[in-house]
Design a protein around this nucleic acid. Structure first.
Lengths: 232, 232
DNA sequence: TAGCTTGTGTGGTCCGACCACATGGCCGTA
DNA sequence: TACGGCCATGTGGTCGGACCACACAAGCTA
């Protein structure tokens, strides 16, 4: 085992034993180096990995925000990993879109009507009605709306995955809108569909909500001139 | 932006521009440090992150396996991230099981009968029949079988996710088997179900395959004394 | 020719130093 | 006493240089 991995292993042990938890502050790099019998450079390499995985957050200076603190951001790991693997052309965007469709339909079917995440989802829809700042602003809120639905299922993993996928698809979706003949008409339709989906979830009609989501997503891609890429 | 992030950004640019691709060898750490105008320590921190995300693989010495080489292992990032986030109790195992069920039923429904991955799946089932090395060996092949099904869909992302999920659940599943009254009977049933699932996929009957997978998984958890954790 | 030796380049590790930063306590002043 | 500025302290961030283990390839040797 390489020395920098000692840090991950050690942390996993501490977490498992309950000696450390989310919000805890790790020992200083110099102290940890001595404690684990490795150099500070190795400690730093280890913490960089933990940081990339969304497990810790490093802050300089002193005070509450300083030091290396345990956080919980599983989406971060997925996010950066997706970016790079897409860039390496090893991960087709079509696969991501397909996965998104899978997760979203499931989320719509299993979202809890009582989830507080639905309140922010409602707020987002209101914003989309109130503001009219073009495709960019609309899609931004659209993405957040869909992530909120995923979070409403209470499943942390699926919520994190949706959050990461959203970022990866954002650019792609943005590009699609440029080919649309009538943005006003499209956005109006999308807004109505959002309301219907939310309504179905709040009425505890998961199956109907899932069907609406499927139509919603597939409809958008079809209108944007993409065929078959999201054939779930 | 911190210096070690320069490496990721630079690599993403190189990949996007096509100057580097999977299999390419990165410049040596010393050369990269000079090229990017950062210290070797920073370069190393950057490559550690890339390594953790499954984007590169580092090898010492000289020859074909030496140096830092671009790979494509998206599952690695998810794998280590899941381990740590589960350890931090931020990610319930139930969520993972639930996600697994979602991905697997979808995979069964969308696996391509012509996929070469199904051949290795068949081989795994034959091995499970031939060898009888207890729950440990059985579950190992069982996991690989399910991952093979996911890969048979051709969706890289879903395949990678399944691979990571299985790893995270492995220990959990292992523990469940200890509570089983009659392992022989259970393994026999699981083997028959595997055959039926594979048969359904090869017959291009995705819907039936998905239903079988659902029963297969839920049945196992129920028999193991877990109730409701996998309620998709 | 076969086998050993040596050279070269790779990542792995370590040390010691300095920097920027944020805080909290000390000290001088009003 | 109360206020305000200064500085000691501890944090992560960065750097340069050094040495190691390793794996291969070229060259030397028997």
């Amino acid at each position: 085992m390489r020395n920098h991995q000692v840090v991950s292993v050690w942390l996993e042990g501490e977490l498992g034993a309950g000696r450390l938890a989310i919000g805890s502050r790790l020992p200083g790099e110099r102290a940890m180096a001595e404690q684990l019998n490795i150099s500070r450079a190795s400690v730093r390499e280890g913490t960089r990995v933990l940081e990339a995985l969304g497990v810790v957050r490093a802050g300089v200076g002193s005070g509450p925000q300083a030091g290396t603190i345990i956080t919980a951001n599983p989406a971060l790991a997925l996010d950066s990993a997706l970016r790079l693997h897409v860039a390496s052309t090893h991960l087709p965007v079509g696969d991501i879109v397909q996965t998104r469709l899978l997760l979203e339909t499931w989320a719509a079917a299993h979202a809890s009507p009582e989830s507080p995440a639905l309140r922010s989802a409602t707020a987002l829809l209101d914003e989309m009605d109130a503001h009219d700042d073009g495709p960019a602003g609309f899609l931004e809120r659209d993405a957040l709306f869909h992530v909120a639905l995923a979070e409403a299922t209470g499943n942390v993993l699926i919520g994190a995955m949706m959050g990461s996928l959203r970022g990866s698809i954002a650019e792609y979706t943005q590009r699609l809108t440029t080919g649309l003949p009538d943005w006003e008409a499209t956005s109006g339709r999308l807004r109505r569909e959002h309301r219907a989906i939310l309504e179905a979830i709040l009425s505890d009609d998961g199956a109907y909500a899932a069907a609406l989501v499927r139509e919603h997503i597939e409809g958008f891609y079809q209108e944007s001139g993409v065929h078959g890429s999201a054939g779930t």
